[in-house]
Design a protein around this nucleic acid. Sequence first.
DNA 1: ACTCAATTGCTTATGCAGTACACAGTAACT
DNA 2: AGTTACTGTGTACTGCATAAGCAATTGAGT
Lengths: 241, 241
Amino acid sequence: MARSKTEKRDPATSLALLWGEQEPPRRGPRPSLTTARIVVVAIGIADAEGLDAVSMQRVAAELDVTTMALYRYVPGKADLVDLMVDAALGPAAAVADVPGGWRPQLAAWARRSWGLYCRHPWILTATAMRRQAMGPNQLSWLDAALAALAGTGLSAAHRHHTVLLVIGHIRSLAQQRADGDEQADQEWNRLTAELLERHRDRFPALTEAIAAGAFAPPDDDPLDFGLERILDGVAALIERS
Amino acid sequence: MARSKTEKRDPATSLALLWGEQEPPRRGPRPSLTTARIVVVAIGIADAEGLDAVSMQRVAAELDVTTMALYRYVPGKADLVDLMVDAALGPAAAVADVPGGWRPQLAAWARRSWGLYCRHPWILTATAMRRQAMGPNQLSWLDAALAALAGTGLSAAHRHHTVLLVIGHIRSLAQQRADGDEQADQEWNRLTAELLERHRDRFPALTEAIAAGAFAPPDDDPLDFGLERILDGVAALIERS
DNA sequence: ACTCAATTGCTTATGCAGTACACAGTAACT
DNA sequence: AGTTACTGTGTACTGCATAAGCAATTGAGT
C-alpha cells in the first residue's frame, strides 16, 4: 500500500526537529533564518491561501531567500508541514478548571479544538492520510482530553476511543465546512440540486429530507448536535459501568 | 481561501460526466477507450499503490496510450478522481430489509460503508478537503442512510446531521487505520513513544493511559465502540422527542 | 595568528507532475 | 467528394520537490 510521496524521511531526524531536540551549529556563518520563522511564514500563507499555496519556492520567496536555502533548516516539505501543524495547534488549552466534571471539560476541549480547525482549515489536509509525525503540542491536546476523562471510571481503551470519536467529529465538521463555504461552490450545489431533482425517484429519502429543510443553514453551532449525541452516548456508557 | 489547485473546472461539464449525461460522439474515429475503462484502471492503481501513484502518465501507460489521450475522455485529473470515487462506492447497499428498525439498519449501513473504506483507503484522501462533485452513487449512499432514519420522528435536519456524524466516525477510523498499519510506521511509533517517555511529566494523562493499555490493538471491531456511542446518543434523542 | 572543518546561502540541474496546443488521420453526415 | 466532428499523438510549458557542487563565513584547535 501507500504512504504519500516517496517516503524518504528519516524518522529520527524528523522527530528531533519537531521536538526541538537538536544542538545548535558550532561553526559556520550565522544562519539568517530560523526554523520558527520559516514555519510562521508558511502558516501565514496556508491561512491566507490554503495549503496548496505553500510551496518551498513560495515560502522562500516570502523570506527573500532561495528555495534551496530552506533545506538547510528543514529536511523536506513533509517535515515543514509537520512543524506547521504542531505550531498552529499550540499548547493545549487547560480545561481542568472547567467546572462540572468530565462532560463540560471535554465539551470545552472540543470547542477550542474546533476553533483551531476554523482558524487553520488546512490542518485537516495536512494531517489527512499521511504518516504524520506527532509533535509535543499535538500530544498535549491528546493529553488534555484524556485528562478530562480520567475520573470517569472508563477503561483506558474506552477513554482513548472516546477522544478519537470527538476528534473525528470535529474533523468531519471541518471537512464539511471546507466544502460548502465559498461562493464558487454555489454553482456546484445548484447544479447538483438540479441533477438530484431530475433523478428524484432514485433518491426518495434524500429528496424528502431536502424538501423538509435538512440542508438549510443551521442557526445553532454546527458542533453542538454531534457533540451532544456523542457525549450522551458516552454518559450512558459511564452510568452503565 | 483556497480550493485545491487552480480551480479551472467547469461544474456543468464535470457533473454531466459524473452522471453519465453526455451524448456519444456522432462522427470521428471510434474511441479506443472508455471513460469506464480508464476509471477501472485508475482504481486498480489506487488500490494497489495508493492515490499518489495515480498520475495521468501512469494511467495512460497502463492503458498503452499517450498521456494526452486521456484528456479526450476526462477534462482533467480532478474529474478522474471524482469518477473513481463514485465508481468505487458503487450503488448503496439496501438496508431497508434489515430487521429491527432504524438502529440495526443504520449500523448495517455503517458497516458496509466502513468495508468500502477498508477496501479503498484512498477514497478518504480523494474526498478530503477539496470540492468534491457528488455523483449518483454517493448520493445513493446518503439516501440509504436517510431512509433508515425516516421513521424515527427526527427532524430532517437532525436526520441529516446524524448521518454526517456516522460518516465522520467512519472516515475518522479510516484515517487512523491508514496511519498505523504498516511496518514502516513501527519505527515512527517506537521513536515517538521514546520521546513521550522522556517527557512523561508533560503528558501525565497520556502516559497513564498508555501504561493502562489504551493503545493496545483492540480485539473487537474498531467500528463498534464509536458507532454504539453515537447510536446510543441518537436513540436518547429519539426517545426524548 | 593560521589552519581546517563545519556550516552557510546560492547556482545549476534533474525528474515528475498536469495540461495547453496544434497536427494528421478517421469516420459519419451532406 | 467535401465538410465536420472527432480521434490519438508529439511537442512544449509551467510549477513542483530536491539533489549536487561551489564559494564564502565562522569557530575550534594548533
